[in-house]
Amino acid sequence: MLLSSKNLSFTYPGQKTLYFEDIQLKEKESLLVLGKSGSGKTTLLNLLAGLAKPEQGQIQIANQPFSDFTGQKLDLFRGRNIGIVFQKPHLLAPLSVLDNLRMANFFGKKKNDRLEQLLDELGLSARKNASVLTLSEGEAQRVSIARALANEPKLILADEPTSSLDDENTEKVIQLLKEQSSKIGAAMIIVTHDQRVKNQISNFMEVKAS
């Protein structure tokens, strides 16, 4: 098992506790997390990414007790092993496209000579030295996918990656995520309520506010 979670729960101050179904995921497997707005999809993703601490339960990633990690160890483990794609691209504005990817390498303490090839595969090789401010929405989201892949992670987490994209770009982005994750042998979890994504990935779980 690459990823397994057990009895995860989380409580926002002054709200009801959220309980999550257990997840078991092997390498190269993909999983959609569906649910209504406010059902706790993003919270689950934050827990899996170590951005928030579960109130109860454990997470294991690549046989490591991920949910027990804290501080620098947690940050470094996340940087090296988990690639996150956010709803909005959130690129670092002062840097060029390629430097945005290099930043991931720097903080994850990994070397990757394939960055330019990766950009090529995502159809961005012409823009590699461009300022990220000049990119279109679709291009920017593809760069953020490239950034998530820059450290060749074991697990890719995507939070509504297609919500602001048109049909054409949505299909492109999902295809790229599937291709690239299988290429580096990573498992992938996509949080979405986008019908267009459901058409492409069949394996899903549903989160209900309970």
Partner: peptide
Amino acid sequence: KYDLAILRAIGATRLQ
């Protein structure tokens, strides 16, 4: 703040 959060998400520590 977003940039800083992103940096943390890609592996930067608080100290960095």
